[in-house]
Amino acid sequence: MPRTVLLVILWAAVAAVLVALPHALSFSQQEILVFMTINLLVVASYRLLTLTGEWSLGHVVIVGVGAYASALYTKELGIPVPVSMLLGACTSALIAMGLSYPLFRMKGFYFLIGSFAAGEIIRLLWKRFREPFGGPKGIKGIDPMPDFSIGIWDFDFFEPVSYYYFAGAVVALCLWLLWRIERSPVGLTFHAVHWQDKLAQSAGVNVRAYRTLAFVVASGFAGLAGALGAHYIGTINPNGFDVETMVFVLTWTIVGGTATFYGPLMGCIALTVLNEIVLREMGFEQMRPLIYGAVLILSILFLPKGLESLVQKLVKPRRVEP
């Protein structure tokens, strides 16, 4: 099987590059790398939701639910950090499950607005209640990941490089899971629900259940991303999860394109590199949001199918085989 061997070599090379990458960067770039890794999980989970054709404006708030939940579990209940991260993810999924009852009475544009409203309600609850959410100032001094060492390697999770390895491993695992879901019959059903929900129903698909499933699974992964971020930064506040942040996620997704799994990931990487590294280096500090907006407009005008369409021209369309 020369193709399998080739794939193994390819992935090993990718892994090697990813492991070596932080050592070629400056300290601030290493920090950006950590955030980008976490954001990759945010956009990948967002894509799972968009598979069923629904675009949510509440996704970043769901990320925040995971962050708040995980932070509070460690602070109030003394749960160890890695466990609380998983619990945070579960909390996000549960909240999404609850939200799905009112939200999935709506479709399309109405769902978009409904999700925005639902997200704002949650966000304002954080702002309003000092106990336990800390009000507008949020939560400070969130427990970091405990240090640990494997043999000769010591991981101090205040160090961006160490946290990058940890978050990278978690995100890679999650991306693999999301990829498995998308390529499975479940993923095919998500597509079917998107393109023709009536026809899918007539084939016996419970459309509402599948929309909910996509929303809950996507929210679970989003919550994990939030928890990963919270325990790295050490502080969270409601404004970190506002609609402006959501616009960033939307921009990454749109610029990357949503037809493929890798589209949003490409969008996130390309725009982060452009925004944080190229523009910063060039000294466009004040003008960065302006240039960012211009990039969005230009990409919609000239690359309406996203960055992924450039890759798609190179590879053949996919085939389903057992």
């Binding site: 499975s184 079917a192 016996g204 499933l213 389903v320």
Partner: peptide, 12 residues
């Protein structure tokens, strides 16, 4: 394949 949904119910 979508037609076979009921006979082979997918599971995440």
């Amino acid at each position: 394949l979508m037609g076979t949904h009921m006979a082979f119910r997918p599971n995440v």
